[in-house]
């Protein structure tokens, strides 16, 4: 029992550190990739290739002056960054990041907690992130923050519908909510017959995947759905009045959310840690998982460098008139084939 606790604690520490480092370095990756897409070179001064830039940014943010405006709802104002930050980190509790291994005679499952309703937990927790944004916008008593928060809440509620419906196809096929079982079902040949392709759900659910990706980007408030921040209209949106570490909590929260959503996408549609040569090198599974997440992150950044921001009415029309009916259609068709 004791060794279980120790192993779990070590895993928790490793995962949290890995996620935070990942957040830091996804900012670096974003700046580098967007820079190269605009013929620039991105950060290049701190360390070789600017690799220490996230560290320098972190130090800068910690030592910045903490400005707390007058006439704010102080309790909510102080709580909001944590509320938006914690759910983003919580998601990683149920995401399997590798094949189960044994280490010094202990069996170590490469997942923090193997919930049998893992995917439901993920969706429940990511939806909580909206509270941080709304409370931040409301407690700042600033019109820019408020506008950002209102937009963000409307957007996230609208896209939550499509987000939830887009994965129902996968769950119908897999007939399970556990992420571990979902990954195990995606091993083996495609549809049991095509041997050179794995049975990843992107092949069975292409429409579901596109819908998931679109809604996921909207859920994490990323460009081109970054109505909550919209720096060209709303200064910085919901975190206009925040500075120093509180601002960086929102920032880390946003990137952690991106990584979380990427992990969920990799798990649901790309077979999670599944890949070739796993029998001989089980530790490769972690590498495969990270590689898939990085692919998703690259897509996020690529999208940001490519498309301009949606207008608010376009966003709402797109969410309710396009994504929602398509997600319903996808669910119905999948259900029909599953019953057959």
């Amino acid at each position: 029992m004791l060794e279980m606790i120790i192993i779990s604690s070590i895993k928790v520490i490793i995962v949290v550190i890995a996620v935070l480092t990942g957040c830091a370095y996804s900012t670096y990756m974003e700046r580098k990739v967007v820079g190269h897409m605009q013929h620039r070179i991105g950060p290049s001064y701190a360390g070789p290739f600017g690799l220490l830039q996230p560290l320098a940014d972190g130090v800068k943010l910690i030592f910045k002056e903490e400005i707390i405006p007058d006439n704010i709802e102080k309790t909510t104002y102080l709580l909001a960054p944590a509320i938006s930050f914690i759910p983003a980190i919580l998601t990683f509790a149920v995401i399997p990041f590798g094949k189960d291994t044994s280490f010094f005679g202990f069996d170590i499952p490469m997942v923090l907690s193997d919930l049998n309703i893992g995917i439901l937990f993920v969706f429940a927790v990511t939806s909580l992130g909206i509270y941080g944004i709304v409370l931040a916008g409301w407690s700042s008593t600033s019109k820019y923050s408020m506008m950002g928060a209102i937009r963000s809440s409307a957007q996230m509620i609208s896209y939550e519908v499509g987000y939830g419906l887009s994965i129902i196809g996968v769950i119908l096929i897999a007939n399970t909510l556990s992420l571990r079982e979902l990954i195990e079902l995606q091993m083996g040949p495609l549809w049991g017959t095509i041997t050179f392709l794995p049975n990843w759900y992107i092949f069975s659910q292409p429409l579901g995947f596109i819908l998931f990706l679109t809604c996921a980007i909207a859920e994490t408030n990323r460009s081109p759905f970054d109505m909550a921040e919209a720096e060209s209209e709303l200064v910085a949106g919901y975190h206009t009045e925040y500075s120093s570490m509180k601002f960086s909590m929102f920032f880390i929260g946003e990137y952690a959310n991106m990584i979380a959503v990427s992990s969920v996408g990799a798990t649901l549609f790309f077979g999670g840690w599944h890949g070739p040569f796993l029998e001989s090198f089980p530790m490769l599974s972690v590498f495969y998982f990270v590689a898939k997440v990085i692919m998703f992150m690259f897509f996020y950044i690529w999208l940001r460098a490519t498309f301009p921001r949606f207008r608010y009415d376009q966003l709402m029309n797109f969410g309710w008139k396009v994504l929602f009916p398509l997600a319903l259609l996808n669910t119905m068709v999948t259900a029909y084939f599953v019953i057959l």
Partner: peptide, 17 residues
């Protein structure tokens, strides 16, 4: 659109260090 940005991604940056 994606192709445009990807094509520019592999071009040499114009930045002079």
């Amino acid at each position: 659109g994606f192709f445009v940005t990807l094509r520019h991604f592999f071009k040499k940056p114009v930045t002079l260090d």
